[in-house]
Write a protein that binds this DNA or RNA. Structure first.
Length: 973
RNA sequence: GCCCCGAUAGCCCAACUGGCAGAGGCGUUCGGCUCAAACCCGAUCCAGUGUGGGUUCGAAUCCCACUCGGGGCACCA
């Protein structure tokens, strides 16, 4: 007999059949209770979180009690998509709600609210399809999502919710942008935390230039500040800004019509959204100088309590590597600086490679030098032709193709010849796309003997391989990249021979520095953050351009710059592989908006607005600050509130970094949002706007809920809810009689395995749904959804209900008696264990302890009132509605939200007797009941005398006895 | 290719610093309740911890190698 995999909801006797048990805890009763309590919480402002001062008070109109510990709890806020929620979405929100309710009952002042991350591509694409303004659909989606989430009974402060598209919010996003724009990074300035290097106002840079304490950059058109005209000065300053416009190679995605950040391009060179090919193009775009913070972003990971995995991912992304820069002279007068992590192998450099975009290639010799190897020319008559052809060829390559070609070495001789600064040997300069312009200096010295990529290139182009590190292996077969002692590395005043790698590096770097041809340096994989997008649905830049085409910040009183109406919301898109296309942002279509007359201090003038918008990440970079006081709008964040909720040492969890006490979200944001947000926070820290060193003190990654899906023999997904288990089918499952195969995957429409929270509310109620999600397993683990198992959580709540309320009469059945010793012990053990598990966020095991206690109560003839009340409090964080209902039926007028979470009495935790395991040779042979405080010799004597031990020892003497009183004795014979 | 994480009963998952493999839930089967059924109550079934080795009095737990699954990075000099 086949059984359905997704059965009917638990039958609802009260609703369906007669009314024999009108007070059974069914889905219908749960709904009544839940809706009633949700309304009540709203009416009373139960979860209004008080600030220590200001208008945000608690439900009784009071500010925060300074004696209470503050606890700032956050979810990664949702994107309000129109697709609707499935059962996987609320997992993290339920988890944080449990933490928040628990911490609140432990006496903390808990800040927990939920905003909406509402700019972005899906809303824009929907608007393009429907012609409706994205604001209309986005706000409608937010309303739908609010309703769905409210039904869960989340204890959020509703006054602190907001969306990143709100004008009030956009204003401050733009304001922060302008702070970054008005900043430069002073490597030498000392920070409040004692470290070196921090952002400072541009005004302070001007002061330094005016005073002559800082010299102009080498490429400035004058030698002193005074000689520069105002445009020249602005150019110098603009080049220092932390937000700057520059023409650099960026990721251009014709299929989306926009440029993308490195972080938004997948490993195989496609756009994360839409999966279109991405090309490297030189375009003039906004960048954020996140690289200035590379060291701090890497180092401060040690200060925060994050999953090791995420810290590792951030470290890898930042990719710090230490090495040296070495200047090579090029015959004919040029110079090229290379970066290497192995300066100790400098004597083994037999050629040089520059990236195809390298400026050295803007001029190349007219003719091949004498003796040029035939294989080096690529068949061209001159270096000019060869380099031009190679540059064109690589420019047309998409990142996908580059990826596919990785490992295969292409390149061409440039006609340039460099001089190895150590031994003065002449070495040819090649260009090849395995050297990237964006990393290091875009040029390398090639040491084929000790680098596999260089070795591959040398083999293909028949270049010499010179061994300079002694070690095993044959460099005719492959490069030797291991450690070893330097050899063949001496000339004139320098010898590395005999030195180990570390020592050789130190020696050569000192020599390079002494001779002014190089220096020790650090390079990062991290690039500056490409910050503009050619899209409509994002924050406009609060910047205009004058006749010199230089950016000018708008004054604060002109913020927010709001989005103009445009005839068409989409950027111009192109064939996905149209390399030569140009970005064309939609904001440019409103000429009236673009050209604006303003008086910015020197009379009314016409300016041109920036037609780009900020990337979706901008809004999520600082939203945690907005929860602190979303109403207040004269500062980005009140310093007093920031210190109270986030400051270093604001509670015993905050550590030296400070920050949000607990931040829960998916691991998919490990490098994007979490890195950008940390960067913005550090700029705000440098500018004195926040006191915490880091935005998020503790990070927790919740797992994903996935579900089984089924496909028919053509591979088409079939509705999972209609599939039945069928032992007779070859695959074990059938759908409408035909065998289907099972697979495990994401919940969604495409796999036809969608299960929605709404279905769960209807079939079981929110408390059962919450309890089930929390009991499935550890919060950080991904697990399969199983609708069939939800009933177990409902049964638990029904038993809890029945322990207090008579299902037939609705009367409270608890009695005012003293609990017996056994019940007291069960109760206090449960309290103790539940608290331990709650503190460790192990909700699945906490629930298991609750079930044990509840099952004990079920076995009693009558349930003592005090015990029932305690059990209700214990369960309240998980199933708040039924808990409130029972608490009220037990005679309490106030919500239990602020009741103290029960504390165990240690007197009931000590056992009268302990079972001691008697092992012989490590195998259990007997058990004896002993007093917990039994002395070791007495225990050993009892164990040796036990029947099981005697039998197992078989008359042999005990050679050794290991005793761990009172629980274990192991006898070795 | 490199780096992380994981593997315990038919399924989801427990097991404190190494110390009785089972807390809880789903499922199975059986009994009680019932005129009968559902619900409920009680019981029951089921693994020696992915594989192979090592350390130890004792290993799910520590070490080594491997297999499978999930994730991250990948021409970064």
């Amino acid at each position: 007999m086949p059984t359905p995999t997704s059965p009917e909801p638990a039958s609802d006797a009260a609703a369906e059949g007669g009314n024999e048990v009108p007070f059974r805890y069914t889905a219908a009763l749960a709904e009544q209770i839940e809706l009633r309590w949700q309304d009540r919480w709203d009416e009373l402002g139960t979860f209004h979180t008080p600030n220590p001062s200001g208008p945000l008070t608690d439900g009784n109109g009071a500010n925060a009690d300074p004696a209470k510990r503050s606890f700032f709890l956050m979810d990664m806020f949702p994107y309000p998509s129109g697709a609707g929620l499935h059962v996987g979405h609320p997992l993290g929100y339920i988890g944080t709600d449990v933490v928040g309710r628990y911490r609140r009952m432990c006496g903390d002042n808990v800040l927990h609210a939920l905003g909406y991350d509402a700019f972005g591509l899906p809303a824009e694409q929907y608007a393009v399809q429907t012609g409706q303004h994205p604001r209309v659909t986005t706000e409608a989606n937010i309303e739908i999502m609010r309703r769905q989430l409210r039904r869960l009974g989340l204890a959020h402060d509703p006054r602190r919710s907001f969306a990143t598209i709100d004008a009030d919010y956009v204003r401050w996003t733009q304001w922060i942008f302008l702070q970054i724009f008005d900043s430069w990074y002073d490597e030498d300035a000392v920070r409040p935390d004692g470290g070196r290097g921090r952002a400072r106002r541009i005004g302070e840079l001007v002061e330094q230039y005016e005073a002559g304490t800082r010299s102009l950059p080498a490429d400035a058109p004058a030698t002193s500040w005074a000689e520069l005209d105002s445009v020249g000065r602005r150019r110098v300053l603009d080049a220092h800004r932390l937000a700057y416009v520059s023409e650099t190679p960026v990721n251009w995605c014709p299929g989306l019509g926009t440029v993308l950040a490195n972080e938004e391009v997948t490993v195989d060179g496609r756009s994360e959204r839409g999966n279109f090919p991405v090309f490297k193009r030189n375009l003039r775009q906004w960048q954020m100088r996140i690289t200035a913070y590379a060291d701090r972003l890497a180092d401060d990971l040690d200060l925060i309590d994050w999953p090791e995995k995420v810290r590792l991912m951030q470290r890898n992304w930042i990719g710090r590597s230490e090495g040296a820069e070495v200047r090579f002279e090029i015959i004919g007068g040029d110079e090229v600086t290379v970066f290497t992590t192995r300066p100790d192998t400098l004597f083994g450099a037999t050629f040089m490679v520059v990236a195809p975009e390298h400026p050295l290639l803007d001029e190349v010799p007219a003719q091949w030098p004498d003796g040029t190897h035939g294989a080096w020319t690529g068949g061209h008559d001159s270096p000019l032709a060869a380099v031009a052809a190679y540059r064109a060829q690589t420019a047309a390559k998409s990142a996908v193709e580059r990826q596919a070609d990785a490992g295969r070495k292409t390149g061409v001789f440039t006609g340039h010849v460099a001089i190895n600064p150590t031994n003065h040997e002449l070495i040819p300069v090649f260009t090849a796309d395995y050297v990237l312009m964006g990393y290091g200096t875009g040029a390398i010295m090639a040491v084929p003997a000790h680098d596999q990529r260089d070795w591959d290139f040398a083999r293909d182009f028949e270049l010499p391989v010179v061994r300079v590190i002694d070690g095993p292996g044959d460099i005719e077969v492959e490069a030797y990249t291991g450690d070893g002692v330097a050899m063949s590395s001496s000339h004139d005043d320098l010898s590395l021979d005999g030195l180990a790698v570390t020592e050789a590096k130190r020696t050569i770097i000192a020599w390079l520095e002494e001779h002014g041809i190089g220096r020790g340096t650090v390079t990062y994989r991290l690039r500056d953050w490409l910050f503009s997008r050619q899209r409509y649905w994002g924050e406009p830049f609060p910047v205009v351009y004058d006749e010199h085409d230089l950016p000018i910040a708008l004054p604060d009183e002109l913020l927010p710059v709001e989005l103009p109406e445009v005839p068409d919301y989409s950027p111009r898109t192109y064939e996905a592989d149209d390399v030569h296309s140009e970005p064309e942002p939609p904001l440019g279509r409103n000429e009236e908006w673009v050209n604006v007359t303003l008086d910015l201090g020197d009379g009314p003038k016409t300016y041109r607005r920036d037609t780009n918008t900020m990337p979706n990440w901008a809004g999520s970079c600082w939203y945690y600050l907005n929860y602190l006081d979303p109403g207040r709008r004269d500062v980005v964040v009140d310093p007093e509130l920031e210190r109270y909720w986030m400051g270093a040492g604001h509670d015993d969890l905050a550590g030296v970094s400070g920050g949000v006490d607990l931040y829960v979200g998916g691991v998919e944001h490990a490098v994007l949002h979490l890195l950008y947000s940390r960067f913005w926070h550090k700029v705000l820290y440098d500018l004195g706007r926040v006191s915490a060193v880091e935005p998020f003190r503790t990070l927790f990654n919740q797992g994903y809920i996935q579900a089984f899906a089924y496909r028919d023999d053509r591979g088409q997904p079939v509705p999972a809810a209609e599939v039945v288990e069928d032992a007779e089918a070859s695959t074990g499952f059938t759908w409408q009689g035909q065998p289907v195969t099972q697979e495990y995957g994401k919940i969604g429409k495409s796999l036809k395995n969608m299960v929605t929270p709404d279905e769960m509310y209807a079939a079981y109620g929110a408390d059962t749904f919450r309890l089930y999600e929390m009991s499935m397993g550890p919060l950080d683990l991904s697990r399969p959804w199983d609708t069939r198992a939800v009933v177990g959580s409902q049964r638990f709540l029904q038993r809890l209900w029945r322990n207090v309320v008579d299902e037939t009469t609705g009367e409270v059945t608890v009695v005012d008696v003293e609990p017996d010793q056994e019940t007291l012990r069960a109760l206090h053990r449960a309290i103790d264990e539940v608290r331990t598990e709650m503190d460790g966020m192990r909700f699945n095991t906490a629930i298991a302890r609750l079930i044990v206690l509840n099952n004990h109560l079920t076995g009693l003839a009558e349930v003592p009132r005090s015990v029932a009340a305690t059990a209700v409090l214990l369960a309240a964080p998980f199933a708040p509605h039924i808990a409130e209902e029972l608490w009220s039926r037990l005679g309490h007028e106030q919500s239990l939200a602020y009741e103290s979470y029960p504390v165990a009495d240690p007197a009931y935790l000590v056992e009268e007797t302990v079972t001691c395991v008697v092992q012989v040779q490590g195998k259990v042979r007997d058990r004896i009941e002993v007093a917990p405080g039994i002395a070791e010799d007495e225990l050993v004597a009892l164990a040796l005398a036990s029947a099981g031990a005697q039998r197992a020892m078989d008359g042999k003497p005990a050679r050794r006895v290991i005793a761990r009183p009172p629980g274990l004795v192991n006898i070795v014979v």
